[in-house]
Design a protein around this nucleic acid. Structure first.
Lengths: 339, 339
DNA sequence: CTGAAAGCGCTAACAA
DNA sequence: TTGTTAGCGCTTTCAG
């Protein structure tokens, strides 16, 4: 058996009851802090617990109470530092409320995501927070409609699933308008795959801000990537610089990791930032302020995003029928030296 | 109740049995893939399962089988990208073996770590992988002696707990010897707190490599920090440059995050890397190759570290009494341009 | 204030 | 091959 080397301490509530000379019900009462137990009795029980080194079997308790006190968090990639801060926020409110957080990396794969949702169906988690691409969420929304989960960062406003995120459209517009104010007219957009809501929203914010300034975005300025890692940004930078005519003077990357890769790629071909090409990122991950030049970027309130998501979920768990609204948190353009 | 909005689909194995016209035992058999069920019976059951949308209650199954099929992973800080790759390795072998990974951030706090160990005691996890500082592990080693866990990166070789890591002493020596070969004689060490085994081992490797070259390390060259974040590296760099006499010409930081902060701090006071000061980091996190100048660092086989840890744990779970040895994986000096 | 007893939903002997 | 039954360890009525 898996736990045969624990058999020695395989002591249960009835052992404790026996040792204390009371019933299991009484032991259970003191374990759960019920007040209707006389002080001397409570002490006898506590003594027996201490003496035996007894530990409650949460599995049994969970079966009985029909809850696992686990919150599932699904991220598409926990190698991306962006998620780390969000996850911290989730974790901290989860713990404050007596839940453990079960963190899973879906790799943005629907199959993996589904298998994690099975944790909910199998009662091993009470609720879930999903940070996966909106497209994936939609694919599962129907079959997961009755499950208690909320969306964070990525969401489908029409899905009826509670969510928290930021106004990506506005944020992208802010970036473009700032670049415009610095005299740029040719602004490139390095975007991620279309499965992401933020990607569509930021693209739209970018295009509209540009056309509001009377500029037609050159399609050659827009690059779609299917990953957010540094290398992808690096190669996108090369693609951009290869443009013979109508080369952009600025680039907006939808993630700091991409932007950092872009800067590196630019340096590789001997271009200076921001003089030859300005670059702006998104997220404001910790390393953004450390590189040379320090990265101008859009800060997301990552920790609050996570905390809010957790609170929405907890609320949904407590009041299953209550309407839980979507909430949008403020972002902020951090102007540093890369643009 | 927490799940009152799921009551509609609160269907159990006996409902399925009834619907299929068989006993619960038979349903259980087909659910668990036992072969001693006639084909027509199996099909009846499967049909009933499908028709009712039944989902097994894992909580009940777990109670019955006395295992949770969860593996706990404790990291001191999942904001540090170093851990991300390790955790991926753990997660992938866990999943391959039918386990879910429960990831927890202890913040290197013994209290938090203890509360996570309680997941084991409460049977909500079958085993654990601990990446916390060796000092913290030791504090808990005695009370956790009978629990199935393994140590990863940080460990106490004498504790009898299976472990996987690298040869930190040797790695630090490699760094120093490389710097020596580049003509450096004055080499600083930016280290983390003494709770970490790697910190003690690298300090020793550093000192011995230096004295093997006939150099006495100036105490002023050695800085101990209590965190690994970028800002700490930045301020350590300033401390170092403030040295009037006997200022070092190279610095070895025990983590890439620190090294990146150092480079940033150096830039802040107008010093160039590597010309004015060479810097070497440790870990080879993804961003290390992206910054300017690209960071020379010691690569750890992070994914393999995680995979190995998971395999050791799984082995320990399968064969509780088997002797599971400690294993050391190879590291590699990545020479880039910062030194 | 305390105890007896009935399950939570499942698996695994043991019978048939 | 299938069903009956006895729990896994706990919480929670319901009596007393």
């Amino acid at each position: 058996m898996a736990d045969s080397f624990r058999t020695a301490d395989e002591i249960s509530i009835s052992d404790v009851a026996q040792k204390a000379g009371v019933s299991v019900a009484t032991v259970s009462r003191v374990l759960n802090g019920h007040t209707n137990v006389r002080e001397p009795t409570r002490e006898k029980v506590l003594a027996a617990v201490a003496a035996s080194g007894y530990r409650i079997n949460e599995l049994a308790r969970n079966l009985r109470t029909a809850e696992s006190r686990m919150l599932l968090t699904m991220v598409p990639d926990f190698g991306n530092p962006f998620y780390a801060a969000i996850v911290r926020g989730i974790d901290s409110v989860a713990r404050q409320n007596g839940y453990f957080m079960l963190l899973c990396d879906t790799g943005a794969d629907p199959g993996r995501e589904r298998s994690y949702f099975d944790l909910l169906r199998g009662r091993r988690a009470d609720g879930a927070i999903c940070l996966d691409p909106a497209a994936i969420q939609q694919a599962l929304a129907e079959e997961a409609a009755t499950l208690p989960w909320v969306a964070c960062c990525e969401f489908d406003p029409a899905a009826g699933v509670p969510y928290v995120g930021i106004d990506n459209y506005q944020a992208a517009g802010d970036v473009v308008r700032y670049l415009l104010s610095q005299g740029h007219r040719k602004i490139a957009l390095i975007n991620s795959g279309r499965g992401y809501l933020y990607s569509r929203q930021r693209a739209e914010g970018y295009r509209n801000a540009l056309s509001a300034a009377g500029i037609d975005a050159d399609p050659a300025w827009q690059i779609d990537l299917d990953t957010l890692d540094y290398a992808a940004g690096e190669s996108a930078a090369r693609t951009l610089t290869r443009l013979r005519r109508n080369r952009s003077t600025a680039v907006f990357a939808v993630s700091d990791t991409l932007a950092i890769g872009v800067i590196n790629g630019l340096r590789g071909v001997g271009l200076r930032v921001p003089d030859d090409m300005a670059v702006i990122g998104f997220d404001d991950i910790a390393v953004a302020a450390q590189i040379d030049p320090p990265l101008t970027t859009v800060a997301q309130p990552m920790r609050e995003l996570g905390e809010t998501a957790a609170r929405l979920l907890l609320k949904r768990l407590r009041e299953p029928t209550a309407h839980v609204p979507g909430v949008l948190l403020p972002h902020k353009l951090m102007i540093r030296r890369s643009a």
